[in-house]
Write a protein that binds this DNA or RNA. Sequence first.
DNA 1: GCTATACGCAACCTAATTGTTGCACGTTTG
DNA 2: CAAACGTGCAACAATTAGGTTGCGTATAGC
Lengths: 110, 110
Amino acid sequence: MTAPGPSSAEGLAATFAALGDPRRLAIISRLQDEGALSVSCLSEGADVSRQAISKHLKTLSEARLVSSVKSGRETRYNLEPARLEAANAFLVQVAAKWDQALQRLKLQLE
Amino acid sequence: MTAPGPSSAEGLAATFAALGDPRRLAIISRLQDEGALSVSCLSEGADVSRQAISKHLKTLSEARLVSSVKSGRETRYNLEPARLEAANAFLVQVAAKWDQALQRLKLQLE
DNA sequence: GCTATACGCAACCTAATTGTTGCACGTTTG
DNA sequence: CAAACGTGCAACAATTAGGTTGCGTATAGC
C-alpha cells in the first residue's frame, strides 16, 4: 500500500473524509480534551459497540490523524496533528484566494 | 428537512464529508482559481460524465460549500466560504488545544 | 494456573455513495 | 419553427461505509 502524501489531492481528500463523520469528530474532541485514551474508555459513553469505535479508530489511524501505542493489554490512541495542519493549510489557502477575489471585485467597482 | 447548523457536530461532519472526495476538491480548486463556472465547463477536463460532476456539485451545494445562480440556460456555481471557515475554526481550535497540551507537558518536565 | 479484561480480525447485513445511461424541459440560435 | 445547447431528474449497477455478532489471542490479577 503506497500511502499518498498529505498534501496531494488524494491524501487531502482522505484526511477530510476521515473527519467527515460525527462519531470520529467526537473521538477527536475527546482525545483533544482528555489526552490519550483506550478503546474501551472511548466506547463507554458511546451508543454503539466497542468494535464500531475500534473501526473508527482504525480509519483515523489510517488517515494518520491518530497514533496508537500499545501498553500492556491496552492500546492508547492519541492525536497526530500533522494531517490536521495540512487540512488547515488547504482551507486557509482557499479562504485567502477568496479574499483576493473579493479585493479584485472591489477594485473593479471603484 | 432541518438543516443542521454549521458548528454542530453533524453539520461540521457533513462539511468535512463533502470535502472528502478528490473530485470535489478539484472542483473547489477550479472555482477558487477561475471564479464561477458552469457544469459543462467543469466537466470538460474531467474523466467522468457531466452528470457525475453535476451530482458532486449537488453534494457541495447541499453542504453549503457552493452556491448556484441560474443565468439563461446556464447555471453558474461559485464558492461559499462560510462553511469552509467553520471547518477551519474547528481545526484551529484542535491545533490550539494540542499546543496547550504540549505546553503543559513541557512545564511538567521542568 | 485460571479467570477476567482489552483488543483485533473475519463474516455478514444494510444503507449510502459513486458512477452510468436515458429522457424531459427550458433556452438560444439559425 | 426547428435544431442544438445546458441542465436536472429517475432508474439502475457496483462499490464502499458503518454496524453487529462471534471468535481468537495476549495481558493482568487472584
